[in-house]
Design a protein around this nucleic acid. Sequence first.
DNA 1: ACATATTGCGCAATAA
DNA 2: CTTATTGCGCAATATG
Lengths: 139, 139
Amino acid sequence: MSRPSQPKLTAADHNGVSVIQSQAHVPQLVPANSSSAGGKALPPSKMKKPSVDKDSDEYRQRRERNNLAVKKSRMRSKQKAMDTQQRVNELKEENERLEAKIKLLSKELSVLKDLFLEHAHNLADNVQPPAGAEGSRQF
Amino acid sequence: MSRPSQPKLTAADHNGVSVIQSQAHVPQLVPANSSSAGGKALPPSKMKKPSVDKDSDEYRQRRERNNLAVKKSRMRSKQKAMDTQQRVNELKEENERLEAKIKLLSKELSVLKDLFLEHAHNLADNVQPPAGAEGSRQF
DNA sequence: ACATATTGCGCAATAA
DNA sequence: CTTATTGCGCAATATG
């Protein structure tokens, strides 16, 4: 992740120049340095690389493998997105369930508290239950 | 969405053949079939369309606009994904909040119910509150 | 050095 | 006609 070095080219990027189908290929601007006598002691450090050999068999294989990897990666990405969306739905349901439960519990609590209050009033007024209470008649 | 007509080509799709920067363009492989001897009464409609004029000014403009639209669309898509993820986090928090509230309410209910039970027992045993109950002495 | 995984990008088809 | 979305390949880069 994070690619700080995006040249921000609006057009004419590294892009283009694919030309797969035809036999006619790119001019092959290899600087003709390697594979000569003496060969290679130098690490390929500061040289341009116009040589990618689009015709190379190995290149095509790499491309194909990468294309496969790309597909795979994108598939995963989409799957993950869908899973996340699914998670949202599940959580929303769970949420409603919990809210309903809270509502129920609150109602119950309210009822019980009212009973307590009523009882307390009866006691405070020093009144025998006027036949409206829950059932403490003893007369 | 949905493109049922994907020829499943592993390579050499419509792709490639971009070649933006250079003046040299594609060989323009026009099949040169019509107007030859032999006729072919085929209507000019069902033929390939190698004519897209990559060099056309209008083509480049369309491409550029589309590229812009693509960027925009992908940006939105990513934003949406991030929003969805954010929503998941929010819902999870909300969920914990609700669970905690349920726990609290349940506890309160439990306490009140215990009080009621105790009271009920006192009444059932027909016992004058032994100076330990909440206070219903009246004699 | 080497392989796969991610990502930004442009293209073309096609959906809206 | 236009823009929006989508599948795809490429190349750079990240990751292991």
